[in-house]
Every structure is written in structure tokens, then in C-alpha cells.
């Protein structure tokens, strides 16, 4: 059951990810991003990270995606007109992706021996995460709140009409 669910969600995530970059219309890309993220929340559930799965759906599929769509609507982006074939992008993209992929898979393979093969019984629920956040990670947590404030102020400033 677990394995089946994993394969289902993994496949959904990857396919949607591929469709994001293949789609010509930004709105479609955004929609596939929502799907991809939602299915990743499913993977999180499989990993017993229940709180994060909820946050993922709330923040990404909710807030961030709404922002994206909102901006797309605001800018009134049409389907991209077909420009000249992006050979340069494809070549460089393939080269760099190949390099990164090669390195990361080599790293996974070489590191697999030292990792435990069985999952621990750890539960990423609200309670244990909350406890950690308000004890060990209190300072980063507070700093993060300041960061959010700064971002908010910055965005307000940026979106003023007569930006100098």
C-alpha cells in the first residue's frame, strides 16, 4: 500500500514538474505547479511529516500560487509567441542538468550504504515540531518573523506606483 502510494505521488509530482517547463502558457504552468506541490504534500504524509504537509498545502498551494496567478492576471500575460528556437538555452540547460544530476546520483549511490534502510517511527506532528521551534530554534524563529516583516515592508515599497 505504502509503496503504491509512493509511486503514485512520485510519478504525479515528476510529471507535473515536467509539464511546468513544457507548457507554453504561464497559467497552465502555474496550475501544474499547484498539482506538483499538492502531490508532494502527499509524499510528506507518507513520510509522517503531517504538519509540513499541511503547511505545504496552505502556503504553497494556497498563498504562493494565488500570488502567482494574481501577478499573471495583473500583467495580462498571453501565451508566449513563438520566438526563435532557443538552442542556446537547451544546450546549456542539458549540460548543466546532466552535470548536476550525475553528481547528485553519484552522491546518493555512494552514500546509500551508510544510511539506515528502515524508516524510524518519528512523527512530524504539530506538538513535537512546536516544542522544538519554541525551545531549540526559538532565536531563528524570531529572526524569521523579522524577515517576514522586512519582506512585507519591501513589497509595499516596491509596489508603489511612482517607484523612484
Amino acid at each position: 500500500m505504502q509503496a503504491a502510494l509512493f509511486y503514485f505521488f512520485a510519478a504525479l509530482t515528476l510529471v507535473c514538474g515536467a509539464l511546468i517547463i513544457l507548457n507554453r502558457n504561464p497559467i497552465n504552468s502555474a496550475m501544474f505547479l499547484v498539482l506538483s506541490i499538492a502531490s508532494m504534500a502527499g509524499l510528506f504524509v507518507l513520510l509522517h511529516a503531517f504538519f509540513l504537509a499541511a503547511v505545504q498545502v496552505l502556503v504553497y498551494a494556497g498563498a504562493v500560487m494565488v500570488l502567482f496567478l494574481f501577478v499573471i492576471m495583473l500583467l495580462d500575460l498571453k501565451e508566449e509567441d513563438r520566438r526563435k528556437f532557443n538552442l542556446f538555452g537547451i544546450i546549456t540547460g542539458v549540460i548543466s542538468v546532466a552535470a548536476i544530476a550525475y553528481i547528485s546520483f553519484a552522491a546518493i549511490r555512494s552514500g546509500s550504504a551508510s544510511v539506515s534502510r528502515t524508516a524510524s517511527d518519528i512523527e512530524g506532528g504539530t506538538l513535537p515540531l512546536g516544542k522544538l521551534l519554541f525551545t531549540n530554534y526559538l532565536l531563528p524563529f524570531e529572526i524569521l518573523s523579522v524577515l517576514l516583516l522586512v519582506a512585507m515592508v519591501g513589497v509595499i515599497l516596491l509596489s508603489k506606483k511612482d517607484l523612484k
Binding site: L14, G17, A18, I20, A30, F68, N86, I90, G93, A101
Partner: peptide, 19 residues
């Protein structure tokens, strides 16, 4: 890893800032 590579490919290949 595959997802990361897909993202990377998109960043380099696509030309729309939002995408």
C-alpha cells in the same frame, strides 16, 4: 534529484520570468 533537475532545466531554458 529528478525534480531538482527538472527545475534547473526550466530555469535555464525558459525565458518567461514568471515561469
Amino acid at each position: 534529484g529528478v525534480l531538482f533537475s527538472l527545475g534547473l532545466l526550466g530555469v535555464i531554458m525558459r525565458r518567461n520570468l514568471l515561469v
